[in-house]
Amino acid sequence: MTSARFTRVKGWAPASPLLLVVAVAFGIPAVMLALGAFTVPGAPGEPGTYGLDNVAASLREPYLTKLLTSIELSAVVAVAGALTGTLLAHAVLTSRSAALRESVLSASGVLANFGGVPLAFIWIATLGNSGLVTTSFGLGPGLLYNFWGLALVYLYFSIPLMVLVIAPALEGLRPQWREAAQGSGASVWQFWRHVGLPVLTPALLGGVVLLFGGSFAAYATAAAMVGASVPLVTMQIADALTGNVLVGFENVALALSLDMIVVAMLVMAVYLPLQRRSSRWLR
């Protein structure tokens, strides 16, 4: 008994520095966030009390719109990005040109990691009010500075991300499966319906989830591009943090953060089991 316990403890010992750092650097902020979200500030000089007031407030206007807009934007980008990314990956991977495949995959690696303010600048130069495309084609101002403009810009990193996510799954579709299906009398469409798409589904949904998370968490691009004209929850939180709002809203910002984490966790809860399933299929 004692010896089993001893080896167990000894086995975990090398991990203790890591666990300690995670507890301090991640655990403490997480606890503070949760505590703050459930703390109702008292009068000046008085200690706060615990309650659901902040969380309730964060789910009412004007905050609710921002949360919902963020979710909507992320959902639009995730679905559109997943579809176009898959089409692009398929078009590239079935190409005979190895150079095309290599360069698109490398470019996807670069663009999937390209975001933040630099991304906003590049699109402002293109489609902003004095952007080259806007002026050359006489397009009206404000083209980029709305919900759909933001979606267009987010797709710039979302589609490449999807290409990277779906490419291994597409490559995992074995030629034997198509041939076996054909041998059993299936048409191309029947192959995709009964085998191809079901096998890709976990990777597709996994991609949707990743893309959703990427857009949902994005802050800098939107802040630099649209400011407050598209109400997003990340910008509301940032405003509270940098003191751009009335006093007393800080705890609501904490509650909003909690809302975001809950949304992200719900979405992730879909992803993880799916990912496990697809990795089993695509050995």
């Binding site: 034997q176 054909q182 041998g183 299936a186 085998v195 695509l282």
Partner: peptide, 20 residues
């Protein structure tokens, strides 16, 4: 075309549809 040949084929390996 292959899907009208009426020939059953067994491949070297990994040819079963993984989702079925």
């Amino acid at each position: 075309p292959a899907n009208r040949r009426d020939a059953g084929m067994v491949f070297q390996s990994y040819s079963l549809f993984p989702n079925l």
